[in-house]
Amino acid sequence: MTTGSFAWRGATIPFHPGESVASALMRAGVLQLGQDGAGCRLRYFCGIGACQSCLVSVGGTIVEACLTPAGDDLNIKAVEDEDG
């Protein structure tokens, strides 16, 4: 039973209440999160907020997708799509 959804690079990603952005993206088959500022690939890796490779931009701030709860009103973008 999904209760919400957010936009990700033009796609609509459904999520369960309380689930992380990372797991919602993963269930939707999104394995690629784009590049970071150093040109390295971003993707889900460790699941405990340590590796800094599942980064996404939420409301303009870069956060770990695995630690961040998904929400309807979140402005979630790939790091490389965020201006600046």
């Binding site: 970071d36 500022g37 150093a38 870069i62 201006d83 600046g84």
Partner: peptide, 10 residues
Amino acid sequence: TERAPALNAS
């Protein structure tokens, strides 16, 4: 800080 290429370039 972490990287912010566009802000840095500005």
